[in-house]
């Protein structure tokens, strides 16, 4: 038996909206630890890792480890019928091929349930070792969204360079070049507005802006975003999910031919 109840159902809606552009089908792995999901985009350029810890749910029952295979476009269609303030319950029998979504309005005057057919998905699972990154940037997620969107008007790729001076986002295109520099800025009364740059080594990497823009679909999950970079590793763009876990996007760099 698998049954979990999430009071802040809007979190689930936001997570699915944030990843459905990159991933069509995915397994949600359920264990006593919580719900997790790992999936690559169809080109194997980006990887998504989601964790929702069990203690963030009002009720969490998972008798044995199960993988629930689902089409994210269908999950999105179903979750769109839930109100933003609804409490969401997910349940599945051990041997069943259906996942039941139950949506309860806050004052319990409307309760809906929708059964969704599950899929058998074979997915490649990658082991991502913990790494010490050369540079870690924490900045307002809205600012990162704006930078990615603005640079997309000029070019297709972004060079992210971290130095003592700050973090520079650069692009070049047919109409010209653009650079945006963000400096460390610790706004003590509003920690969510601050930009914090921790750098062990200067690092500069090139990425496809199309993917970066897709990651920023997660902006509503968190007021800040953490970007981790090392010269020989994919970039990690992480949105914390309040008291529950995280949504991380890994993106392989582009290199000079």
């Amino acid at each position: 038996m698998f049954e979990v109840r999430l009071v802040q159902g809007s979190l689930l809606k936001k997570v699915v909206e944030a990843i459905r552009e990159l991933v069509t089908d995915a397994n949600i792995d359920c264990s006593s630890t919580g719900l997790s999901l790992q999936a690559m985009d169809s080109s194997h350029v980006a990887l998504i890792a989601l964790l929702l810890r069990s203690d963030g749910f009002e009720h969490f029952r998972c008798d044995r480890n199960v993988s629930i295979g689902m089409n994210l476009a269908n999950v999105s269609k179903i979750l769109r019928t839930a109100g933003n303030d609804d409490i969401i319950t997910l349940k599945a029998d051990d041997d069943g091929d259906l996942l039941t979504f139950m949506f309860e309005s806050p004052n319990q005057d409307r309760i809906s349930d929708i059964e969704m057919k599950l899929m058998d998905i074979k997915s490649e699972h990658l082991g991502i070792p913990d790494a010490e990154y050369e540079a870690v940037i924490k900045m307002p997620s809205q600012e990162f969204l704006r930078i990615c969107k603005d640079l997309s008007n000029i070019g297709d790729t972004v060079v992210i360079s971290v130095t003592k001076e700050g973090v520079k986002f650069s692009t070049r295109g047919d109409i010209g070049n653009a650079n945006i520099v963000c400096r460390q800025n610790t706004t003590l009364d509003k920690p969510d507005d601050s930009t914090i740059i921790q750098m062990k080594e200067p690092v500069s990497l090139t990425f496809a802006l199309r993917y970066m823009n897709s990651f920023t679909k997660a902006t509503s999950l968190s007021s800040s975003v953490t970007i981790s970079m090392s010269s020989d590793l994919p970039i990690v763009v992480e949105y914390k999910i309040a008291d529950m876990g995280y949504l991380r996007f890994y993106l392989a760099p582009k290199i000079e031919d």
């Binding site: 990887l47 290199i255 031919d257």
Partner: peptide, 14 residues
């Protein structure tokens, strides 16, 4: 020109 690397070049399949 830049070549796009794949995520599977960095992490091992478990």
């Amino acid at each position: 020109a830049c070549v796009q690397l794949s995520i599977t070049e960095f992490y091992r399949t478990t």
